[in-house]
Computed example of a mutant assay.
Amino acid sequence: MLDQINTQIVDLLGPAGPLIVVGGLAFVLLLACIPMMLSAKPDPLDKLASDSRNRLEAETRQVLRETAKNDKLNKYAQFLEPQDVKEYSDIKLTLLQAGYRGKEAVRLYYFLQFALGLGLLACGLAYYLLFMGPDATPKQMAMYILGPGFVGYYAPKYWVTKRVQERQQTIQDGFPDALDMMLVCVEAGQSMDQAIVRISKELRPSYPPLAEEFQLVSYEMKAGKDKAAVLNDMSERCGVQDVSSFVTVLNQSASFGTSVADALRVYASEMRDKRVMRAEEKANKLPTKMTLTTMMFTVPPLLIILVGPSAVGITEMGNMGN
């Protein structure tokens, strides 16, 4: 029976007939399985886990974003904000470290990237069409059209990065003075909360970013937030290692019941020594940085003064010989 069917298939389709028939049957079975797979009901446990995960992410995003009911950018949130919670938290922390604490900072950041990127891209396209013409090479077209768009898209990121670096440098420079002032206030009998309020007022003319951080800490403590959590939040907002170490020292002092004044005295002394070492490090780097500048602006004039008269004399002797 099977031999007769095989012979008929070979006579009809040739030597590869059996393979064609098997492949056709497999294809038909796959097509038959597709409706069954589409109509299959999901596992209730998987659906429950998925719903819980989606609800948790939605609640987390809502808490992080602090969306207002009358927010004009709320309807564009899915385009102006990352949907991933971790990515949103990272960019929000970066903007906090740059000093942008507004609840719309993330949306404005992405809006500026979007607007500047498209705006400069349109300007580059208009310049290319008006002044370059069809004779431009593909390299020139990419440079004049895509170049401005690239610059516009990454300009907000560059600005925020530079702002973070400048702010962290200011906090790092003013932190030893803040510790000395805090030590004086604590040893004079004031509490830590009163010392922080006093520091936020005294440091504002010299180091505004550090004064803002201490002022925010004082407001959160007055609102009843846990002191350890407030200090940890300050450490994250500053992004400076000295502040993180200071927060660790205060939390350990509170946990073990040791004297805050003694901990501040030791740590303030270390910060003063570290500031002196940083100044010495910059002073030691200065000659190396000045070497290239010195060579560029000193060696050429010196060569002109020394070699110039000889070159003129050789030229005159050559003219006299001729």
Rank of each mutant, 00 (worst) to 15 (best):
Q4D: 10
I5N: 06
I5Q: 10
L19V: 13
I20L: 09
V21L: 10
G24H: 05
L25I: 15
F27Y: 05
A32S: 11
D43V: 11
D43M: 07
K47Y: 14
S50W: 11
D51Q: 10
R55M: 04
L56Y: 14
E57M: 11
R61Y: 04
N74A: 10
A77D: 08
E81T: 07
P82T: 03
S89A: 09
L93R: 15
L93C: 06
T94D: 09
L95E: 07
Q97W: 05
A98K: 01
A98G: 02
Y100A: 13
E104G: 12
L108H: 09
F114N: 04
F114C: 05
F114W: 08
L118Q: 10
L120F: 12
G124V: 03
G124A: 04
G124Y: 01
L130A: 12
M132T: 05
G133N: 01
D135H: 09
I145T: 03
G147Y: 02
G149N: 03
G152P: 00
K157G: 03
E166T: 12
R167Y: 05
G174A: 05
P176W: 00
D177A: 14
A178C: 13
G189P: 00
S191P: 09
S191G: 15
I196P: 00
K201T: 06
E202P: 01
P205V: 13
L216D: 08
E220P: 00
M221N: 04
K222A: 11
A223I: 01
K225E: 08
V230P: 05
L231E: 06
N232F: 04
S235K: 00
E236H: 06
V240R: 00
F246S: 02
L250V: 07
T258I: 07
V260E: 13
D262T: 13
R265S: 10
A268F: 01
E270Y: 03
R272Q: 13
R272D: 14
D273Q: 15
A279K: 14
K282M: 04
A283L: 12
L286F: 08
P287G: 06
P287S: 03
K289S: 10
K289F: 12
T291D: 06
L292A: 15
L302H: 06
L302Y: 02
L303G: 10
G308R: 02
P309T: 12
A311P: 04
E316Q: 10
M320E: 09
